[in-house]
Design a binder for these strands. Sequence first.
DNA 1: GTATGTGCAAAACGTTTGCAAGTTC
DNA 2: GAACTTGCAAACGTTTTGCACATAC
Lengths: 159, 159
Amino acid sequence: MVPAIDVSAEMNLLRRRMVERGFKSTPQRDEIARWVFTTHDHFTVDDIINNFRNRGKKISTATAYRVVQMMLELNLLEEHDFGRGTKYYEHTPGHEHHDHIICNDCGQIFEFANQQMEKLKDEIARQMGFAMTKHTLSIYGNCTRCTPEEKNARRNHRA
Amino acid sequence: MVPAIDVSAEMNLLRRRMVERGFKSTPQRDEIARWVFTTHDHFTVDDIINNFRNRGKKISTATAYRVVQMMLELNLLEEHDFGRGTKYYEHTPGHEHHDHIICNDCGQIFEFANQQMEKLKDEIARQMGFAMTKHTLSIYGNCTRCTPEEKNARRNHRA
DNA sequence: GTATGTGCAAAACGTTTGCAAGTTC
DNA sequence: GAACTTGCAAACGTTTTGCACATAC
């Protein structure tokens, strides 16, 4: 049996914020949110739709997009653009701010958090006279597995 | 009379790289490149098309996109996504690496360069075992002019 | 019962592509 | 003249929207 992940705290937070803003509770919103909160990974709207499909259920594209939009407004989701033509999302409750490092080859998205980096961002914003609301840092490259030199090094070692 | 900006060095660089790669020289490519090199600002493909239109000339959408694609391949252009649905570009010759700080309100895109920041990025990539190829940092917020508190402060001063 | 949400299909958006005609080298 | 480039219109993939019907409160 799959161990059930407890997302009741997140679901309660969602409900509270929905009431505050006059959003109604629906099975679609609940199901999407539940999946979003159990997914500790970056996902696309398509992933939401496929998750429904995989479980033999259906959700309309429009609804999926609209629920994501709602969750963004409720500050339960963060949106990222990694230059792949489609937007990526991740839920925010229980996740501190972090940045991303993405492998050009295998496409994996890793996270990292660096205090010094955050301080520097603050400082730069202040220097520029900005009231910072958001900041995104993405590093692209090849991860250990996908670094050509690494592969060669390994190959040479074996030779 | 508008003082002509000398972009011959950039145009020569373009031609050299085009020859290297077997690209042919055409009036469209020349005109777009000339405009791109004189524009020390972030622009969209639409801006290229509008520049032609404003001068009573015409360029097909396809060509504009294709020339931008070519200049990207020749490493004469950098592409940015500021989450506005359309991509922004800037020419690279004569411009050191820098990051961006964008005003949510007036939309202005400012640049900044910070050595400490660059070092940190390098270090993080190394720590994560990545061979870094690219990195983008964008800070969003409200610039001095568009900060609500600033406006209030000014208003109070006058009152 | 009224306000809101859903699903569908159509539209919108920025961008890319197939192809015939035109250009470069 | 062979290879490449252009312009057009059509296609693309992602996201949004109008509208009739269904649901929540």
